[in-house]
Design a protein around this nucleic acid. Sequence first.
DNA 1: CTCATTCTTGACTAAAATGGTCAGGAATGA
DNA 2: TCATTCCTGACCATTTTAGTCAAGAATGAG
Lengths: 155, 155
Amino acid sequence: MRITSSIEYATRLMVTLAAEHGKAPLPAERLAEIDNVPADYVSQILVKLRRAGLVTSHRGSAGGYSLSRPPREVTIEQVVRAVDGSVFEEVCERYDAGSKDCRHQGQCAISPVWTRLGEIVTRYFESVTLAAILEQKAGACGAVPAWLEKLTPGK
Amino acid sequence: MRITSSIEYATRLMVTLAAEHGKAPLPAERLAEIDNVPADYVSQILVKLRRAGLVTSHRGSAGGYSLSRPPREVTIEQVVRAVDGSVFEEVCERYDAGSKDCRHQGQCAISPVWTRLGEIVTRYFESVTLAAILEQKAGACGAVPAWLEKLTPGK
DNA sequence: CTCATTCTTGACTAAAATGGTCAGGAATGA
DNA sequence: TCATTCCTGACCATTTTAGTCAAGAATGAG
């Protein structure tokens, strides 16, 4: 399991835009320089972010991109969903496809594990805002949260 | 983000083997039938599980595979690690590659988000044993655990 | 001892996802 | 009016995923 480059890039772009929130819009090319991401690729990602309503674009000279909403109202969940379409793909749907072919049918004991994992990931992403990332520059995000400790390894 | 077929298959195989724990070993082909997974693919996955020490193989007639340890001592984390090599790939390592090229260097605010996500996923997988999956056939795993509720969406 | 059974190894392939590039066009405002 | 900037969609290379295949080596039942 991994974080794709698109997600990584999109998050970085959003954080950069968050830092500029309230100021003049940033052109895609400028964003590419700042975040060290291929310029054409940046444009592609920005299109998705715009279609999801997360950023607003302005054409013409002195144009560029800016956040549609204040950084504290934007979560990583929204960014991931904008780029990937969903946060966590439901496993059963790959096998279901409308038919009776699903290997999960009947007394399936496993699918709840994946479903729950999806919930956990989604919840976590929902809990992280751009504002929080900006504020915690030095890595306060890195600590294991208290509630996580409640999960005792090995059952 | 998604669960790959290999992971899904491996988990299913392990659960099936867990149900047979203590009885005669199950041949790979038999496992393939039971779990509805391509036979040759099953063999490949079983090899990884064996190399990780999770299952034991017996050759010859009446041979097959069996769990190396009781179901309550085997976690999903171990299964995932056996198949994928790791539970969650560290994002920075993809860019690092030993050079100064890492876009996460300096005051990177984002990488802790991915690191923490990795911890959360790993912890969750460590908390689910084969025994637990077997016992909760009807889907008790599906409920959102209490500790998860502590994560308030939107920061 | 022999032979069917079963695992072992490793190469091979097709399809999908990922990561990235490119070109032509349409708006905008200086 | 024209340089700037976004917009659209096609295109491509690489990697990963999913699955297949074949030759061979153990093993134990008979």
